[in-house]
């Protein structure tokens, strides 16, 4: 590391701010308190029916959504979706224990791992889903490799009703209470991949998934 550059940049900043020494104790205490306070700023109003808000917002960003009454119906929903989109019943699935409880049909070829070049369809759970914006939240980890979210043509995400939270900030609260620090990646995913780089016309499926399918499990 070039320590000269570091020291010079920091001292240039301090000079610009009319400070020659490090921060006064009271100031740094206030800054630490501000960091630790995690205070939430202005938030958009979100109606109380979170499930419907999440579904409406997801559809608005070109995700497709189906609702099933329980985890038991997920395989049927997946099969139906893949059949209608003329896809083979071959999926790469997150090694997420929450997906273990599902009774997948033997006709479906399933591999539990990260995604590779050849994979067309991925299935993952989510850490949370945000009603405010129709956003899926996925955290990297042993049970949720990031490549599943980006490499395949189709990403199917399974969202349980109780995972739907109101605002983006609720994700940060949940991470702080459930995890030790941030994972390598937090992906906030709002609809399928898109580009408007050619004549400002929106085209889905640039480099990430062409289709973002969401299955909402409407069970308590």
């Amino acid at each position: 590391m070039n320590n000269n550059a570091r020291e010079q940049i920091l001292s240039d900043i301090r000079r610009a701010l009319n400070r020659t020494t490090s921060l006064h104790k009271s100031v740094s205490a206030a800054l630490m308190a501000r960091l630790a306070g995690h205070s939430v700023h202005v938030q958009p109003v979100v109606e109380t029916d979170l499930v419907n808000r999440f579904i409406a917002k997801s559809k608005a960003v070109a995700s497709t959504v189906v609702t099933v009454p329980s985890l038991m119906q997920v395989p049927e929903a997946v099969t139906q979706y893949l059949t209608t989109s003329s896809q083979k019943l071959e999926v790469v699935m997150a090694p997420d224990p929450l997906l273990d409880d599902i009774d997948w049909p033997t006709s479906m070829k399933i591999e539990r791992r990260q995604a590779g070049r050849q994979d067309v369809v991925s299935i993952t759970g989510v850490f949370a889903a945000i009603a405010e914006t129709g956003t899926l939240v996925l955290l990297s980890g042993a049970h949720s490799p990031t490549t599943l979210n980006f490499l395949p043509d189709i990403h199917i995400a399974i969202v349980r009703r109780q995972q739907i939270i109101t605002h983006i900030e609720d994700v940060w609260r949940q991470i702080r209470s459930e995890l030790e620090g941030m994972p390598r990646t937090v992906n906030l995913i709002t609809g399928p991949s898109r580009t408007a780089d050619i004549e400002q016309t929106i085209q889905l499926g640039a480099h990430g998934p062409r289709s973002q399918h969401v299955i909402v499990v409407d069970a308590e």
């Binding site: 917002k57 960003v61 090694p95 791992r113 990260q114 914006t133 956003t135 990297s140 980890g141 042993a142 490799p145 990031t146 490549t147 620090g181 941030m182 994972p183 390598r184 990646t185 937090v186 992906n187 906030l188 995913i189 709002t190 609809g191 399928p192 991949s193 898109r194 408007a196 990430g208």
Partner: peptide, 24 residues
Amino acid sequence: ATGQEMSSYTTFSTGPRRSTDLDG
């Protein structure tokens, strides 16, 4: 920028892959 509420991908990267991560 684009009139979107959220862009398709907002991604937070924190450090390299963890010991148990399968990719990254």
